[in-house]
């Protein structure tokens, strides 16, 4: 290598390092300037609280900016990493808090505008708040998760039935082992805190959850999935099947694969609409190793 050529390479390396240094210094100066203040949060909180309605939901972008729980944690907060893909059909309005301008990342705002009716945009210092109308949902007629204390839970095997009749404050406990119970919980499914009914299936049995006298609407919507830890730690984990019966007739039979996913299933119940029926959920798996399964369901128009 000639000395001249070597010097040119050295000069180029030095220039790259100098540019990198200037970029880095600039980044550390710029970064704090973009942070919202406590006053920004207080103004945002006051604005939202004043206008909050039942069935509203508030989300934040980026999903990890959890400081908003200090200000609106008393409201219905969600923070899914993929907000535009979320099923919000049970809600009437969406508020989106944008920190550091994240609402514009990955075209989130455009995706939401395509999906819902954009209503308004407000600024609170370095925070931006967007409001959307979700649609003409008439809301949920019956939420099975909220009525889990009224359910009849049992394990159905080929040799008979074992009742899970011990109500322990928040769950129906089955007789054999502690994880065999059915009750309300929150699990990390699909990178979201999912409020759902814990229903760990059992090999060669049907975990059965029955609700009596349920008001039926046009649709019965089921959301279900496996906890993140179960999917990650049991890479060859078995699928979980759910069968739903209305008035003793099967209306839905679906499969939940061992994947990071919050599945949405829907059954047409319009032929029973306006009546009250017994609704039964049967949860099954060929192998119950770490099947941390959870579901939620509702009837709606």
């Amino acid at each position: 290598m000639t000395g001249n050529y070597k010097n040119k390479i050295n000069l180029a390396a030095a220039a790259v390092i100098a540019v990198a240094a200037l970029y880095s210094i600039g980044w550390y100066i710029w970064s704090p300037l973009t942070r919202p203040s406590i006053e920004d949060y207080e103004r945002f909180s006051s604005y939202v609280h004043d206008r909050w309605q039942p069935r509203d939901v508030i989300a934040v972008a980026p999903f990890w900016a959890e400081r908003l729980r200090e200000y609106v944690g008393d409201l219905e907060v969600i923070n899914p990493p993929r907000l535009a893909d979320e099923d919000l059909s049970g809600n009437s309005r969406l508020w989106l808090l944008s920190v550091f301008g994240y609402a514009n990342n990955d075209n989130l705002l455009d995706k939401l505008k395509n999906k819902y009716r954009f209503v308004d945009e407000m600024k609170f210092g370095k925070l931006a708040l967007y409001q959307f109308n979700i649609g003409a949902s008439s809301g949920i007629a019956y939420d099975f998760r909220k009525n889990i204390d009224k359910a009849h839970v049992y394990i159905q095997r080929s040799d008979g039935i074992r009742e899970c009749s011990s109500w322990q404050g928040d769950r129906w406990q089955c007789p054999e082992v502690s994880w065999q119970n059915v009750g309300g919980t929150i699990l990390d499914i699909d990178d979201n805190p999912r409020k759902c009914i814990w229903a760990h299936p059992i090999t060669n049995a049907a975990l059965t959850v029955e609700f009596k006298d349920v008001p039926i609407s046009k649709k019965l919507v089921v959301h279900s999935g496996l906890a993140y830890t179960a999917v990650r730690m049991m890479k060859d984990g078995a699928p979980v099947y759910v069968e739903v019966l209305v008035g003793g007739r099967s209306v839905l039979r679906v499969k939940n694969e061992n994947e990071k996913r919050w599945n949405r299933f829907e059954a047409d119940t319009s032929s029973w609409s306006g009546t009250r029926q017994n609704v039964t959920f049967r949860i099954m798996t060929p192998h119950d190793g770490m099947r941390h399964f959870c579901f939620t369901a509702d009837t709606r128009d």
């Binding site: 400081r67 729980r69 944690g73 907060v77 550091f100 929150i186 990390d188 805190p193 906890a227």
Partner: peptide, 29 residues
């Protein structure tokens, strides 16, 4: 995360009272 979710259930609310954040990313709440 499930410890946090468990607390929401037991505590009956999801409201954080204070926390440590750097660039709004939480370290503790």
């Amino acid at each position: 995360l499930e410890t946090e979710y468990k607390a929401w259930l037991y505590f009956g609310n999801e409201k954080a009272l204070t926390g440590v954040y750097i660039d709004e990313a939480p370290f503790v709440q």
